[in-house]
Design a protein around this nucleic acid. Structure first.
Length: 295
DNA sequence: CTGGGGATGGGGCCC
DNA sequence: AGGGCCCCATCCCCA
């Protein structure tokens, strides 16, 4: 398949989550979980991970600076492919001297080389945190996505004159005001709007992808996403079906699987009353042209 | 066409 | 405030 093909389909608004697990939250049952943001058609584009290895000449890592800012990310030694040495590294792109030379401010995010955009910064204290199998540790990279623009200016950019003017743009932080003068936070990468800085910071991680797989170099926005990915390498499947012997690496997939054991599936076709274990199956069914009659 | 598994993205909640 | 986790959504692939 082509990694980018998924982006071709517009997805529009997030579907409000109908109900949350009552055991975990009762209040949120009345509130859609994705009410904060409208997803653009391209918002779920998949990164071209091959580009992680395709460093353009302007961004080749250089000695000795690069060594000082490289850090092996997540690699439980027994998990690592001995031959996979490479860009499974996190690099502080923001502090890179090369950044000055190429005019960051003039680059739109999508124009930045992926190898730069996706590799994010680590502080000294982060670099001291190692990996702990079996579960990959959270790398807790202090990428700029989790750093305020002001602190970036104060900390990192101070070391590199000339970058000081850029951080707010690069960090994707801007505070806008809506007509009611209520604060809103816009992502400079994609213009999504958030009602809290925390939500925006979380979102920005999806642009910066600070969590990098030590085995294949694939980058993720959050540690637990990486953790799930690492299971594809290790084969770990901690979620077992209580009805059969199947095990799954992902809880959501187990949940979907459990539906297959149920006579009455979760998703109903309103036209023909058929039920499906997955929303995607229901959609396929409808797109295929539901006859409308009961089956 | 259908059903299912695998993989991944992302916002919200809890601690 | 931030990390971890939950849950949902969706895509791709295959049988």
């Amino acid at each position: 398949m082509t990694p980018g093909s998924a982006a071709a389909r517009p997805r529009g608004w997030s579907v409000p989550r109908p109900q949350r697990d009552p055991a975990t939250s009762a209040a949120s049952a009345t509130m859609p979980r994705s009410f904060l943001v409208r997803k653009s058609a391209c918002s779920r584009r998949r990164p071209n991970y091959s580009e992680l290895h395709d460093s353009s000449p302007e961004f080749t890592f250089q000695q000795p600076y690069d060594q000082a800012h490289l850090l092996a990310a997540i690699p439980p030694p027994e998990v690592l492919n001995p031959t996979a040495s490479l860009p499974t590294l996190i690099w502080d792109s923001l502090l890179a001297p090369q950044a000055q030379a190429i005019g960051w401010a003039s680059l739109l995010p999508q124009e930045m080389p992926k190898a730069v955009v996706e590799l994010t910064s680590l502080s000294d204290e982060d670099s001291g945190k190692g990996s702990q199998p079996p579960s990959p540790p959270s790398p807790t990279p202090s990428s700029f996505s989790s750093t305020s623009a002001s602190s970036l200016e104060a900390e990192g950019f101070a070391a590199f004159p000339g970058l000081g003017q850029l951080p707010k743009q690069l960090a994707g932080l801007s505070v806008a005001k809506d007509p009611q003068s209520r604060k809103a936070f816009n992502c400079k990468y994609c213009n999504k709007e958030y009602v809290s800085l925390g939500a925006l910071k979380m979102h920005i991680r999806s642009h910066t992808l600070p969590c990098v797989c030590g085995t294949c170099g694939k980058a993720f926005s959050r540690p637990w996403l990486l953790q799930g990915h690492v299971r594809t390498h290790t084969g770990e499947k901690p979620f077992s079906c209580s009805h059969c012997s199947r095990a799954f690496a992902d809880r959501s997939n187990l949940r979907a699987h459990l539906q297959t054991h149920s006579d009455v599936k979760k998703y109903h076709c309103k036209a023909c009353a058929r039920t499906f274990s997955r929303m995607s199956l229901l959609h396929k069914h409808q797109e295929a042209g539901c006859s409308g009659g009961p089956r």
